[in-house]
Design a protein around this nucleic acid. Structure first.
Length: 308
DNA sequence: GCCATGACCTGGCCGC
DNA sequence: TGCGGCCAGGTCATGG
């Protein structure tokens, strides 16, 4: 499933392959893939054709390509992409025959860009760029040009843990307070993209296991030091996944070249029900959580376990 | 404002 | 073999 490391891998691939190349055509094969475009496929085509991608930017699980007009002048909107659960952006011609091909962007001077999405939770849309509500640049972890503006659908989400701004102690402390503000379970808070973006079910479970915290522990009853440990663990696990090229389970996530990541080999608890905990050997447990699953070690992550 | 829940969607898998 | 049902989960809308 594409979470932050997977999206960052895709963003880096886009930066390498599509920047500076004009869009010569847009073909939407499935309207649902452009459902957030008010004017539908025709509007998307009108807003993209003749434009050039100038930067690939990311915040959390959202990725966007800034645009320049035919005259080379920057435009005040960008092509926003969310991969959903199974979206892929590919530059391989193999995508042409993929049964789940949803959108085809024809680009001058090289391979085209293909949006493939089996479960159709992902989407493409051209969105207005707005000043960031928190006053700073948009986050990215790959050295791409930092955007000073955010696409409108991204404006409400928080910074992600790979955002350089969150490396600053004051910003990190503010995030820590934000996490501890509500009564919700810590995993629910981690998954709340308005608190901190980019964490999905996989990395939430892995981070909580590393920190030794039960997923349902009320966030407002956790000490700052423990919340800091959870956030540090989430950042660490995502950075490691990024190095590995992301997590792949069933070929639903690949980079722009169609290659799978291999971080799934490093997962301690997610998808490991019945397997021994790498730390203590206790069998990993799966429990229903908000219409999905939580994987955890019942010994390392006790609900009422004394914490520091 | 905060929080929980359901809907959306498709294909693989399992049981009958 | 074929069918029906369950499951996966990110985001958003809705209602309490």
């Amino acid at each position: 499933m594409p979470e932050l490391p997977e999206v960052e891998t895709v963003r880096a691939g886009l930066a390498d392959h599509v920047l500076g190349r004009p869009v010569t055509g847009v073909r939407v094969l499935r309207d649902r893939a452009v459902r957030r475009q008010a004017g539908g496929a025709a509007e998307l085509e009108a807003l993209l054709t003749g434009r050039t991608f100038t930067a690939a930017v990311r915040r959390g699980k959202f990725c966007w390509l800034t645009l320049a007009g035919p005259d080379g002048e920057p435009e005040d909107h960008a092509l926003l992409v969310h991969l959903g659960m199974s979206g892929q952006l590919l530059i391989s011609e193999d995508a042409r025959s993929n049964p789940h091909l949803r959108v085809h962007l024809e680009l001058a001077g090289g391979p085209d860009l293909w949006f493939v999405d089996q479960r159709t939770f992902g989407y493409l849309t051209v969105a207005d760029l707005l000043p960031t509500p928190d006053g700073g640049p948009g986050g990215d972890a790959g050295g791409a040009p930092v955007a000073a503006l955010l696409p409108a659908p991204v404006a409400h989400i928080g910074r992600d843990l790979l955002d350089p701004v969150l490396a600053e102690p004051a910003a990190r402390a503010a995030l820590n307070r934000r996490v501890r503000r509500g009564r919700r379970g810590i995993k629910t808070v981690l998954l709340d993209q308005t608190v901190t973006a980019g964490i999905g079910n996989i990395y939430a479970d892995e981070a909580l296991w590393r920190a030794g915290v039960h997923y349902a522990r009320p966030a407002d009853r956790m000490r700052p030091g423990l919340v800091a440990a959870v956030l540090d663990a989430a950042e660490a696990v995502m950075r490691q996944a990024l190095v590995a090229g992301g997590t792949s389970f069933d070929a639903l996530y690949v980079n722009v070249n169609g290659a799978s990541g291999y971080f799934d080999r490093s997962l301690a608890v997610y998808g490991q029900e019945g397997e021994p905990c790498p730390r203590c050997g206790t069998s990993i447990v799966r429990e229903a959580f908000a219409n999905r699953s939580s994987f955890f070690c019942p010994r390392c992550q006790r609900a009422g376990r004394p914490q520091t």
